[in-house]
Amino acid sequence: MSPARLLSAVCAVLVLLSAAIVPAAAAPPTFRHPGVFVSAAQLDFVRGRVNAGAQPWAGAYNQMMSHSLASLSRNPKPRAVVECGPYSKPNLGCTDERQDAIAAYTMALAWYITRDSRYAAKAISIMDAWSATIRDHTNSNAPLQTAWAGTSWAKAAELIRHTGAGWSPAGVNRFATMLREVYLPEIINGRAATNGNWELTMMEASLGIAVFLEDRSAYDRAVAKFRTRVPAYIYLTSDGALPKTPPGSGIDTRDEIIRYWHGETGFVNGLAQETCRDFTHTGYGIASIASFAETTRHQGQDIYPEIQDRLRHAMGFHARFELGESPGGLCDGTIKRGLGPVLEVGYNALAGRMGIPMNNTQRLVEQRRPEGTNMLFAAWQTLTHANNPA
C-alpha cells in the first residue's frame, strides 16, 4: 500500500474511533430557563392549585412549609472541604451540605409560590455562603456526595436566577464557578463499576449543572452516559439471559454480573441492579432516572420514549412489593422494602402525560401522598409533579 493510501486508511479509522468515543450532540441550540427538573409552566400550575386550596397540592405545600428546611431562621454551615466516607462515616459537612442544598431548593419553591422575597433572600444567602467557602469533596463517598448536593444546588440556582429573585450578578457568577470547578469535575465522568444509583445521580447532577452553566459539552456527555446506564440498571427480558453491563465497568462474566446484581439469578422485567441490595438505594436510581428525563424534556429533548418500558416496569415491579406482596423466590425470599418518596415524577410522566396504565404504581403513589423528602436529594415531588399536565 502506498504511503498516501496508508495515511488515508489510518485517517478513516481515526474518524470511526472518534465517532464511537464522542457522544452525539444532544444539547439544545438554545437552553430553556428555568429548565432544571421543573419549568415555569409546571410551577405556575402548582401555584394556582395551592392558591385554590386544591389537593394534593395544598397538603404537599403545607408539608413543605412546615418542614425545618423552609425555616427562615436557618443558618447555612458551609465548609471548605466536605469529607464523606462510606455511608458518610466520617461525616465532616456531608449532612450540612446536603440539607443546605435541599433547603435552598425548598426556599426557591416557596419564593415562586408565595412571591415572598424573604424566601428568595434566604435561598441566595445559603448559596452565597457555600460558593464563597467550598473548595473540595474528599474520601470514598466524594462523588456521590457531590452528586446529591449538586442536584439540589442546580435546581435551586436555576429557579432563583431565572425568576427575578434578585440574585446579584457577582453571586451568580461565583456560584457558577463553584459548580464548574468544584462539582462538575467530580461527577461528569461517572463511576461505571459502582452500584448504579451512584452514576445515575451523578448524571442527574451533571445535567442540571450543564443547563445552569449552558455547557453543551457537559450536557452531551451526561446524556450519553445516561443512555448506557439506564439499560444496565433496569432489566427487560428483551436484553437476553443476562442484564446489560455498564460500559467501562469491567463486569463481563456471568459470575461477575450476578455478584453485581447482588446475587439474583431470576431476571424479570423491572428488576433493578440494586433490588436485592435494598429498595431504598433502588429508589435513588429510579428517582434520578425520572428527574433526568424531566430536565431533558424541558430542554426540548423528550427522552421518556427511550426509557418508558424500563421505567414503568421498574416502578410497577417494586410497587407490588411495597404494597405487601410476598417476594417469593425474589432475592432468596428476603427483600428490604423502603422505596422512599421517589415515584411521583415518573408516574406523572408515564401515566399522566403518556397515558400508560400503571395500576400498582398508582395505588402506591396515591397511598403515600404527599411525598416529602429523603433528605438526600429528592424533595417535594407531590407538590411539583402530582397530576401536573405542564
Rank of each mutant, 00 (worst) to 15 (best):
S125K: 13
K155Q: 13
R277N: 01
A232N: 00
R353Y: 02
R74K: 15
N387S: 08
Q301G: 01
E371M: 01
N359Q: 12
R312H: 11
S249T: 04
A378E: 02
D332E: 12
I160V: 15
M65E: 14
Q273G: 01
N388C: 05
A108C: 04
Y304E: 08
S217F: 11
P247W: 10
K336T: 09
A241I: 03
P3H: 03
G250T: 03
T194S: 14
T384E: 05
A19V: 14
D44T: 07
I257S: 03
F267L: 09
Q367K: 12
E204R: 03
A110K: 00
R310D: 02
F31N: 10
S2N: 13
Y119V: 02
H385C: 00
A110H: 02
A319H: 10
L144M: 06
Y119D: 06
R320M: 08
E204Q: 13
G240A: 12
A70R: 11
G333P: 03
A110V: 09
K225C: 11
S140W: 05
L69G: 01
R353C: 05
T146I: 00
A349Q: 13
G283I: 06
L159R: 05
L159Y: 04
C11W: 04
R49S: 10
A129W: 06
A129T: 02
F175V: 00
R216Y: 08
Y235Q: 04
M202C: 01
V365I: 09
T114V: 10
D302P: 09
P327F: 12
S140R: 12
G171W: 00
N141L: 07
P78W: 05
D255F: 10
G171I: 00
I160D: 04
S68F: 08
A379V: 03
A232M: 01
V365C: 02
T177H: 14
A123T: 06
H67I: 04
A103K: 11
P86C: 06
V182M: 09
A176C: 11
Q55K: 10
A12I: 06
A58R: 14
V46F: 01
M315R: 01
G171S: 15
A149I: 06
Y235C: 05
L17N: 03
S152C: 13
L343F: 15
Y87N: 14
F317D: 07
L144T: 01
L14Y: 03
R369P: 00
A132T: 06
Y119G: 01
T253H: 11
L383S: 01
Y260A: 02
M1L: 14
M64V: 13
D136L: 04
A12M: 03
F45E: 10
T275N: 02
A129E: 11
V172Q: 15
E264F: 06
P86E: 14
V36Y: 05
A157G: 02
S125R: 14
A80V: 10
G372Y: 01
S39F: 09
F317I: 09
V182L: 04
A349E: 11
G283N: 08
V81A: 15
A241S: 12
E306A: 10
D239V: 02
N269F: 02
A218S: 15
D309N: 08
Q308R: 12
W380R: 13
L323Y: 09
G372E: 08
T382C: 14
P78M: 06
C94R: 07
G166V: 05
D252Y: 03
N360R: 15
A293V: 08
M65R: 15
R297H: 11
L184G: 02
A222T: 13
E214T: 09
F377H: 11
S206K: 02
T275C: 06
